[in-house]
Nucleic acid binder design. Structure first.
Lengths: 183, 183
DNA sequence: ACCTCGCGTAGAACATCGTTCTACATTGAT
DNA sequence: ATCAATGTAGAACGATGTTCTACGCGAGGT
C-alpha cells in the first residue's frame, strides 16, 4: 500500500509537476483518504522522500549503466546517462535538487541512496585514475567536481536557461573540457 | 512605494527564507495591506520578479567586478565573485535559480537582467579568447559551458551537497579544470 | 465653501494547501 | 460472541494566494 501511494505520487508528479504534488491529489490518485499519507509516511515530506529514494535509485542506475572498458568512454557514458536521466524525468530531478535541498530534513535512507549514486561516480573516477586517463588525486574530490559541473548543466537546461542553440552539444563540450582538464 | 515593498520583500526573504516570503509578511513588513502587493505588482510572482531583478543586477555586478588585465585572472575572478555573491545572498540565489526557473513566466525586464549578467561573462570569455588563453570559438557557447559548471558547484554547495571537506578548494579546482580544458 | 465623484486602501471572504481531530468501521484476540 | 485496537473517512483548523466589499480621502465643479 505504501508502494501504491508512492506509485500514485510519481504519477501525479509526472502529470502535474512538483506544484501539483499535493497530499489530496496523491491520496485521490491512490484511491485512499489523505490520512493514509500521514499514517504511512508521517507527513508530506516523508512521501516525497520515498519518491526521491526511487529517483536517486534511478539516477545511480543511470550513472552506472554502461561499463565500457575504456575509462574515458566509461566516464563520458556516465555523464551522458546522467543528463539522459534528468531529461527523461525532469520533475523527479527538480524535486531531487530543486526545493531547498537542505532545509527539508533528509531521511537516512534518502541520504544513503544519494550517497550510493555519488559513489557510482566515484568508482568511475577511480577507474579512470587507475588507468591513467585522469590525473591522480582524491577520487571523491574529482567526482564532486564533475558532479558539480554536470549538475549545473542539467539544472540550467531543465530550467530553460541554456541559451545556446544546441544544449546537447554544449553538454558534450563540457564533458570534453572536464576530461581534458582532468587529464 | 514599490521600492518600499521590494525592500520589505528582500528583508523578509533574507530573514525567513523563500518559504517565509508570503504576501502578508511582505505587506506587514512594509506597513501596508496585502492588497498593496496586487495593486503594484499584479500578484506575488510580480513582486518576486522585482526582487529577482535586483538579484540578477547584483550577480552581474559581481561577475563584472574585478578587471584584471590578465585574461585568465579576470576569468578566475569572475568565477570566484560568482560564488561569493551566491554565498553572501543564498536566499536570493535560491529564488533566482531554485523554484522552477521556467514555469514562473519571466518578466521581460527579468530576462533582460539575466541576459545582462550572462553577457558580462561572455565579454570576459571573449577577452580571454582574443588574448589566446582560451581556445577560439563561440564565446557564448563557452560562456554557457562555464556558467553551467559554476552554477552547479554553487547550487550544490548551497544545498549542502558538496561532500568534500573544503568546498572552496573544490570550487577552485573546478575553475582550474575549466581554464585548463578550455585552453 | 461645500458637495460629489473616483481611486486606492483596509479588512473580510473564498478556495486550496498541509495537517489534525473525531467518529466509525473492521479486524484480530479472548 | 464480545471487546479492544487499529486504520479509515470526512470534517475542521490555521495559513496561503487571491478576490470582493465597503470605506476614506483628496480633486474638481458650482
Amino acid at each position: 500500500m505504501e508502494q501504491a501511494l508512492v506509485d500514485a505520487a510519481e504519477r501525479v508528479l509526472v502529470r502535474d509537476g512538483l506544484g501539483g504534488l499535493t497530499v489530496r491529489a496523491v491520496a485521490a490518485e491512490a484511491g485512499v483518504a489523505p490520512m493514509g499519507v500521514y499514517n504511512r509516511f508521517g507527513n508530506k515530506d516523508g512521501l516525497v522522500a520515498a519518491v526521491l529514494v526511487r529517483g536517486f535509485g534511478g539516477l545511480a542506475a543511470a550513472v552506472g549503466e554502461d561499463t565500457d572498458v575504456d575509462p574515458t568512454a566509461r566516464l563520458l557514458a556516465s555523464g551522458r546517462n546522467y543528463r539522459r536521466f534528468a531529461l527523461a524525468h525532469p520533475q523527479h530531478y527538480a524535486a531531487m535538487f530543486g526545493p531547498g535541498l537542505s532545509q527539508a530534513a533528509p531521511t537516512a535512507e534518502l541520504a544513503d541512496r544519494a550517497d550510493a549514486a555519488f559513489t557510482a561516480l566515484v568508482d568511475r573516477v577511480r577507474y579512470g585514475m587507475d588507468r591513467g586517463v585522469l590525473r591522480p588525486g582524491d577520487p571523491r574530490g574529482t567526482a564532486q567536481l564533475i558532479w558539480n559541473a554536470v549538475h549545473g548543466a542539467v539544472s540550467l537546461e531543465l530550467g530553460g536557461l541554456v541559451l545556446t542553440p544546441d544544449a546537447g552539444a554544449t553538454y558534450e563540450a563540457l564533458l570534453q573540457v572536464l576530461v581534458d582538464g582532468l587529464r
